[in-house]
Design a protein around this nucleic acid. Structure first.
Lengths: 230, 230
DNA sequence: CGAGGATTTGAGGGTCATCAAGGCGGGTGG
DNA sequence: CCACCCGCCTTGATGACCCTCAAATCCTCG
């Protein structure tokens, strides 16, 4: 990571954003202040590499705006996404006590704004303050649960089923028709679901018979229950 | 789970086993004693269901002997393994602060002996004692890292590559020839790698050309480096 | 309005799941 | 110690699913 990038302590607005993330939402008072004080805010243009597998793991991050791709590169150069992190997500937190080097790479999928937490600072904070430790535990737990879900989805469901799953989980309402706007490019969604972009496209066209219409980033669903039965 | 099963407080031998697990290995003194005192030891015959998805998550477990299958069942009845836990592994620890109900099912793959930890006891211990909280954090971190590895392996490698990977990681030595004895049935290995049993078998026969010979549970590798290049 | 990139569509091939037999291994009883 | 037997494992055939490459089309942003 280029330390010459513009960076600054978290502003009031940014502190408010961070306070609402699932990582920090249960913290209050001095515990919260201490973590917020440790945050440095960075902005990166699209496609910037934030860190690479193998580099010393000095910090973890919370996404303030934009999306970050977490991925690994195989020996023959192919890439596989592990996770897509959006606003409120944290990544590389598993290395607070988990190891010395990053185990995967992270890249800005678009222009992003990130809060950077020094590993040692947070490690120390968790040591001094049980509330911080508890926040780390809940963040790790949720991340682990969602990663296990990811494994099962890959192994149990076909591409159209995974896409249907994603759409249903993003639907604000329970029943009837809905309209969703994807928060990012289809490229990213494909990686998130473990698919090639073409496979995602074909999955959408398979879902047409279940009442799904795609126009750019906007997706119309005529009947959520019909989609659920898929 | 049937509470009428024979159960008892951990014996000295069992406490020693638990102390060596990666979950507890960094604990000492009263912190260690408190966690060990909270453990209850159970034995289950092969194929026993330990808990099922949706049940209230009252406890998590550490494997003392045997293997446990963690899996989920899809609506149409198919099962997918998420993880295979052997001696020293813990499972369902992600629910200490992570939720009220199990998110997957657990079944004894063979005769097993488990240490059961009441969620509330450990939650309380972690609250009172930063060392316990730190142990929970490192356990969660390692589990998360290995689950992310699992996602990437599924997405990046073919069946023979995943099998080769498994063999290489189980090899005690670095180079030359080796002989491995699988610690469990091939059935389990297949599930662990996200494969049907037939696919595992075919993967082994593909690896024959890389110097891998299979006879029952014993696997001969003529040249580890050749396998690594696969 | 136009350019460049993202997405869709088509064709072909590789990988893996499923179903159905047949072979082998390991544990049991003589 | 050896033969038998049950169940795990292997093998074959088939098809579904998804990746890759290539070309056409659609968005989006300047």
């Amino acid at each position: 990571m280029d330390m010459l990038d513009k960076s600054h302590k978290a502003s009031l607005r940014e502190r408010n954003l961070l306070t609402k993330t699932s990582f920090l939402k249960d913290l209050t008072g001095p515990s919260l202040a201490r973590v917020l004080d440790a945050a440095t805010v960075f902005s990166f243009p699209a496609r910037t590499t934030i860190f690479q597998e193998g580099e010393p793991a000095l910090a973890f991050y919370s996404v303030l705006a934009g999306y970050v791709r977490i991925y690994r590169v195989s020996r023959d150069g192919r890439q596989a996404d592990i996770r897509i992190c959006g606003p409120g997500d944290i990544f590389a937190e598993c290395l607070i006590y988990g190891g010395d080097a990053y185990r995967f790479s992270a890249q800005a999928a678009e222009n992003v704004s990130l809060a950077r937490f020094d590993m040692q600072d947070i490690r120390q904070a968790a040591n001094d303050d049980i509330a911080v430790a508890r926040s780390v535990i809940t963040a790790l737990s949720q991340h682990l649960l969602s990663t296990m879900d990811c494994v099962v989805n890959d192994r149990l469901h076909t591409a159209p089923q995974r896409v249907a799953d994603y759409l249903i989980n993003r639907c604000p309402i329970e029943t009837g028709q809905a309209s969703i706007r994807l928060p990012f490019q289809k490229n990213l969604l494909a990686g998130m679901l473990g698919l090639a972009p073409e496979a995602l496209s074909r999955a959408f066209s398979t879902l047409r018979r279940a009442g799904v219409t795609v126009r750019g980033r906007v997706i119309q669903i005529s009947d959520i229950d019909a989609l659920r039965r898929f």
